[in-house]
Simulated assay, not measured.
Amino acid sequence: MKNSVRVAISGAAGRIANNLLFSIASGQLLGDQQPISLSLLETPARLSMLNGIAMELHDGVFPLLAGVEVSDDPWQAFEGADYVFLISSPLDSLATASKTADARMEQHGNTFALHGKALNDVASRDVKILVISNPVMINALMVQRNAPDLNSSCISALMRLDHNRAHALLAHKAGASLADVRKVIVWGNHSSTQYPDFYHATIGGVRVDALLENDWLHQVSIGLVRQRGYAVIDAYGGLRAASSAAKAAIDHMRDWIFGTRDGDWTSMGVLSDGSYGIPSGIFFGFPVVADGGQVNIVQGLQICPERLEKIHHSADEIYRRCQQFNLL
């Protein structure tokens, strides 16, 4: 049996984490031959709940689960971490969001700055850190700015939920198998400015513009993907998506570790190098390929001025927010 690896999760008492933890313990992240130790981080006020989750993990008798630790100290929780999912302690329901957006963002920023410092001090030097909580691109940059000793390639931001939504929507519209859909992109931010892009997508090797009407592909679908999260919230009576977000986090991390499938890419928030005119130094959702644990932005895509304007609109939103919080 292999030596165990250490997986740390912040905001571990929340709904996303609750779905994520049991999937990881069952081997869905690293496979059925890799033992794992879980390190769970929460605020002091939620430690009692977290202890209950730890009990359930133990009672689940997961063969791969080598241990579970619970803490409210990020330096303890992130010690030697190989893989980290940063969910903070977000509000599960919009109905409980009494603070202004800026106040919530400032609170999150302080949390992610602290987490960045702890990760910088104690995590594995090859750690893979996935930031999940919104505003996800700002939070990822906050971590990166506070972890100067970690390579920026160790940090990424979740766009996979939006990518998966676009992928599933396209398959459903075409009446096709999910496995046959390739080269979907969701550019930009996890917000209403994101740009779902089917221009390069194929189904069974055939370009989708030969299979579906242009208006749906390049107009209607954009709104459907952008609004999907709000549709879920409405259906749940105010609760945010949790199961699909946890699945997206695992999909993101698995592609990062094991590589994207041949002939395909995924959407991932990574630090911009200036590709496609996106300002360097901000985190942004790009099409990427992964291989051997390394992620590279797909280069050379033909993008017309109209589509590029939509992509840059999302970049402008992120850039302004970064400036607002003195991150640039």
Rank of each mutant, 00 (worst) to 15 (best):
M1E: 02
V5D: 01
R6Q: 00
A8Q: 02
I16F: 12
N18A: 13
F22V: 14
I24H: 09
G27M: 09
L41G: 02
E42C: 08
L57A: 00
L57F: 01
H58T: 07
D59V: 00
D59K: 03
V61A: 09
P63D: 00
D72K: 10
F78T: 03
F78Y: 08
V84A: 10
V84I: 12
I87V: 06
S88C: 01
S93F: 07
A95N: 12
Q107H: 05
G109L: 09
F112G: 05
A113G: 13
A113T: 06
A118M: 01
A118C: 02
S124G: 12
D126N: 14
N134K: 07
N139G: 11
N139H: 12
M142D: 08
Q144T: 12
N151Y: 02
A157D: 06
L158H: 14
R160N: 13
H167Q: 15
G175Q: 09
G175S: 12
A176M: 06
S177R: 10
L178C: 04
W187L: 12
S192P: 00
Q194W: 00
Y195C: 09
P196H: 06
P196F: 09
Y199T: 14
R207M: 10
V208G: 04
A210S: 07
L212M: 04
L212D: 01
E213I: 03
L217G: 01
G223F: 05
G223K: 04
G223W: 08
L224E: 14
V225P: 01
R226E: 02
A231Q: 15
L239S: 08
S244Q: 15
A246N: 03
S267W: 03
V270Q: 13
Y276P: 05
F284G: 02
A290H: 09
L301H: 08
Q302W: 13
R307S: 15
L308C: 05
I311F: 08
D316Y: 07
R320S: 12
